Simulated assay, not measured.
Amino acid sequence: MKMTGNIKYNEHIDYYFRHVESGHIVASKEVKQLVAYLKKKLDDEKDLIHIDHEEIEKAIKSIEKYFPFRLIPWQKFITAFVVGMTYKKDGSLVFNEFFLMMGRGAGKNGFIAALSFYLISRQKIRNYDVAIVATSEKQAKTSFMDVWEALDSHWRKLEKKFRRTLKVIGFKKTKSKLEYFTNNAKTKDGLRPGCIIFDEVHAYEDEENIKVFTSALGKVPRARRFYITTDGNIRGGFLDQMKEEAKMVLNGEIKGSRLFPFICKLDDPEEVHDFSKWEKANPSIMYFPHLKLEMETEYRNMEHRKSAKLEFMTKRMNIPSQDAYDLVAEWEKILAATKHKFPEFKRSACIGSIDYSDTQDFAVVGLYFKLGKKKYFKQHTFINHKSLL
Rank of each mutant, 00 (worst) to 15 (best):
L34E: 01
T142G: 03
K378S: 04
E21S: 09
K375D: 03
I60K: 10
I210L: 07
V147T: 00
S276Q: 08
G252I: 11
N127P: 01
A185Y: 10
A223D: 12
N6H: 08
K65Y: 07
T4H: 11
K161T: 06
M3K: 15
F17E: 03
D361V: 00
K173F: 03
D323L: 09
A106Q: 03
G84Q: 04
I197G: 02
F69S: 04
Y325V: 10
V272W: 07
L217V: 08
T174R: 06
Y368T: 11
E298A: 10
D199R: 01
E200F: 04
A36K: 12
M248A: 13
D189S: 14
H340R: 15
A349G: 02
A223P: 13
I254Y: 05
D199C: 07
G170F: 03
S121Q: 01
E294N: 14
E55S: 09
L42C: 00
R122Y: 12
Y87D: 03
F99T: 06
L38M: 12
R222L: 15
L178V: 10
T4E: 12
K186S: 13
W155C: 05
H340L: 14
N384Y: 06
Y9R: 01
S121C: 00
I49C: 07
V26G: 04
N10D: 14
K76C: 00
N183I: 01
K172H: 12
Y16N: 13
Y376C: 02
E179A: 13
M102C: 05
P193T: 09
L250Q: 06
R258K: 15
V82K: 03
E311P: 06
A27F: 00
P320G: 04
V168T: 13
K175C: 06
L48Q: 11
N251A: 13
H380R: 09
R192M: 10
Q33T: 10
T4S: 09
K341H: 11
I354A: 15
K341D: 14
E270V: 07
E253C: 06
Q123E: 11
S22V: 00
A324G: 01
V201Q: 02
M85Q: 08
K157C: 00
T165C: 04
K160P: 07
A59K: 06
V35S: 07
E179H: 08
V130Y: 00
G366N: 13
D43I: 01
K39I: 09
E179N: 15
F144S: 02
W155R: 08
I196D: 07
T86S: 09
R126G: 05
F213W: 00
D52L: 08
K41M: 14
E279Q: 15
E298H: 07
P193S: 05
K186L: 04
K277V: 11
E279P: 03
Y368D: 13
D267C: 12
D206H: 06
N209D: 11
E179G: 05
K386M: 10
E344A: 00
